[in-house]
Design a protein around this nucleic acid. Structure first.
Length: 423
RNA sequence: GGAGAGAUGGCCGAGCGGCUGAAGGCGACGGUUUGCUAAACCGUUGUACGGGGUAAACCCGUACCGAGGGUUCGAAUCCCUCUCUCUCCGCCA
C-alpha cells in the first residue's frame, strides 16, 4: 500500500510511477479525499478536546453538589456535531484506504519501461543447453513412459491440472525439495519455517493478493484461503511487528504446497506439469531495513541461481519490465530454465523486491536501537525454486535416448544412490 | 462437538465509572557509586494519527487496556456481538 504522506509530498513522482505501469494518474483524486478527511478529523478532534475538558468540569461541579446543566447542554450540542464529522471522516478514511489498496507498487527507477514481456531485459545466461543426438521428449511423455507420472489417475481424483507421481519420480520431487532446503538453510543462511497453507484474508491483504486477485485463489467453505505461495505466510510472520534494525535481515525459507486456481490461464500450458493447481515450491523471504533491500535482492537471486548451477541446468536471468511486474513488486528478476522439448527458457523462479509496499499493508516496521521513529521494513520474496518445474527441467535435460533419466550428481545422495531412473 | 475460565504496556500483574496512558514488580536503557564484576541508588522507558516546527530534537491535541458496537456529561472499569487463548470431557492424524 502506498503511504498517503508520500503522495502528499511527491504527487508528480507518484503519478509518474503509475504512468510507467501503464495506469491512469491518481494523485489529484487521492489528495482531494485526503485533504477533506484531514479537515474533518482535526475539526472533530478540536470538539473532542473541548468535550473532554467539559466532562471533567462536570465531574468537579457534581462532586461538590453543584448544578452542571448549562455545561451539559453545550456538551450535548458538541457531541452531535462531532459525531457527524467523525462519521464523515470515517467514510473518507475507508474510501482512501480502499483506493490505496488497489494501486500497485511503483516500479524502481532502474526497471525497464515496457508494456509487456517483450520489453523484459536479459541480464545474463548461465550454462549451455544440452545437445541431443535424438529428438528430446517432453517431460510428460518421459514421465508417462516411465510409468511413474499419471495424469489420468489425477484427473479421476481431482480433474484437470493435477498429477500423480509415483516411485522414483515421487522420490525425485522429494529429493529436489530436500536438496533446495538444505542448500538454503545451510550455506545460504535461511531459517527453515513450516507455515500453515491455509490463511485468513488479512494475510492476503498484507502481501497484496487481496483485494484484487481473489479469483486466482482457492477458498475453503470456512473462509480460509489456500496459499498461492509461501510468500504469504512467511512475509506475514512480521506483520504488526516493530523489529530491531540489528536483527535484520531476517531470512526465511519454506517448502510448501501452493494452490492456484489459474483462472486467467485457460488453455495455457494444458499439457504436463508446467501449470498445475497444486505444486510444491521452496520459497525464500527476506525482511530488511530500507538500506539493505537492494543488496539483499541480488543476494536472493544468487541463492536461487545456485540451485540451478548445482543441478547443472542452463538458465537465464531477466529483469521484468514495468508492464510485466506483479502487483506488489518494485523490481523483479525472473530466472528461466532451459527446457529442451519446448526449445525455450521457461520461468522457474521470480525474485521480487517489494520495498515498503507490503510492509505498509501489514504494518511491519523496524527501528534503530535508541531511536524513536519507526520505519516500514522492506520485504523480498523469491522462489528457490518451484519444485515441480525443476522436476520437469531435470527430466527433460537429463533424458537419454531410451527414455531413462540420469540422476544429477547433486541429487544422487537424496535418491539413495540411484543413478538412472528407468522403467 | 459439550462445559467452564480468561484477554491490560517488552514481560508479569493491579485496577471503586471521573484524579489511570494506566499502580507495583521484572526487564531494557542512561547516570551515580565501584579497582573489575556483582550489588545499591536516581532517572528514563508504548504506538498511531492530526496540528505546530525547514528538518531532527521537541511541543500541543486525539485515539488505543483482544476487535467492533452501545449506555453515559464522562468507560480499561457497565451492556451486546465477534475473535482468540487456556482448562476439563468427547472425538481424532
Amino acid at each position: 500500500m502506498h503511504d498517503i504522506k508520500f503522495i502528499r509530498e511527491n504527487p508528480e513522482a507518484f503519478d509518474a510511477g503509475l504512468k510507467r505501469r501503464g495506469l491512469e494518474v491518481r494523485s489529484a483524486e487521492l489528495l482531494a479525499i485526503d485533504a477533506e478527511r484531514r479537515r474533518l478529523m482535526s475539526e472533530a478532534q478540536e470538539i473532542q478536546a473541548r468535550r473532554n475538558k467539559a466532562a471533567k468540569e462536570i465531574g468537579a461541579i457534581k462532586s461538590k453538589g453543584g448544578d452542571a446543566s448549562a455545561i451539559m447542554a453545550q456538551v450535548a450540542a458538541d457531541k452531535e456535531e462531532e459525531e457527524l464529522k467523525d462519521a464523515a471522516a470515517k467514510i473518507l478514511n475507508l474510501d482512501l484506504e480502499n483506493a490505496l489498496l488497489e494501486i500497485p507498487n511503483l516500479p524502481a527507477s532502474d526497471v525497464p519501461d515496457g508494456k509487456d514481456e517483450t520489453k523484459n531485459k536479459l541480464l545474463r545466461t548461465s550454462g549451455e543447453p544440452p545437445s541431443f543426438d535424438f529428438k528430446p521428449k517432453a517431460h510428460d511423455e518421459l514421465g508417462v513412459g516411465l510409468g511413474l507420472m499419471d495424469f489420468d489417475a489425477a484427473a479421476k481424483l481431482s480433474g484437470a491440472r493435477f498429477v500423480v507421481l509415483k516411485g522414483a519420480l515421487a522420490r525425485l520431487e522429494r529429493a529436489l525439495g530436500a536438496f533446495m532446503l538444505n542448500l538454503h538453510t545451510g550455506t545460504n543462511g535461511y531459517l527453515e519455517v513450516n507455515p500453515p497453507v491455509l490463511v485468513k484474508d488479512t494475510a492476503l491483504y498484507g502481501t497484496g493478493q487481496l483485494p484484487k486477485f481473489g479469483d486466482d485463489l482457492f477458498r475453503t467453505e470456512q473462509g480460509h484461503w489456500m496459499i498461492p505461495t509461501a510468500e504469504v505466510p512467511l512475509t506475514n510472520l512480521v506483520s504488526g511487528e516493530i523489529l530491531d534494525d540489528a536483527k535484520l535481515p531476517i531470512r526465511m525459507t519454506a517448502l510448501t504446497n501452493c494452490f492456484r486456481s489459474e483462472a486467467g490461464a485457460a488453455g495455457k500450458d494444458t499439457r504436463g506439469m508446467i501449470r498445475q493447481h497444486q505444486f510444491q515450491k521452496v520459497e525464500l523471504v527476506s525482511i530488511t531495513t530500507p538500506e539493505q533491500s537492494e543488496e539483499e535482492h541480488n543476494r536472493m537471486l544468487n541463492c536461487a541461481e545456485e540451485v540451478l548451477k548445482r543441478l547443472g541446468l542452463a538458465y537465464r536471468v531477466i529483469t521484468l519490465c514495468t508492464g510485466d511486474m506483479g502487483f506488489s513488486a518494485r523490481k523483479t528478476y525472473d530466472i528461466e530454465v532451459w527446457l529442451p522439448a519446448q526449445n525455450a527458457y521457461r520461468e522457474i523462479s521470480s525474485c521480487s523486491n517489494c520495498g515498503e509496499f507490503q510492509a505498509l499493508r501489514m504494518k511491519a516496521r523496524c527501528r534503530k536501537a535508541g531511536e524513536k521513529t519507526t520505519r516500514p521494513v522492506h520485504t523480498l520474496n523469491g522462489s528457490g525454486l518451484a519444485v515441480g518445474r525443476t522436476l520437469v527441467a531435470v527430466l527433460e535435460n537429463y533424458q537419454q535416448a531410451d527414455g531413462s533419466i540420469v540422476v544429477p550428481e547433486a541429487l544422487k545422495h537424496y535418491m539413495g544412490g540411484l543413478e538412472v531412473i528407468k522403467p
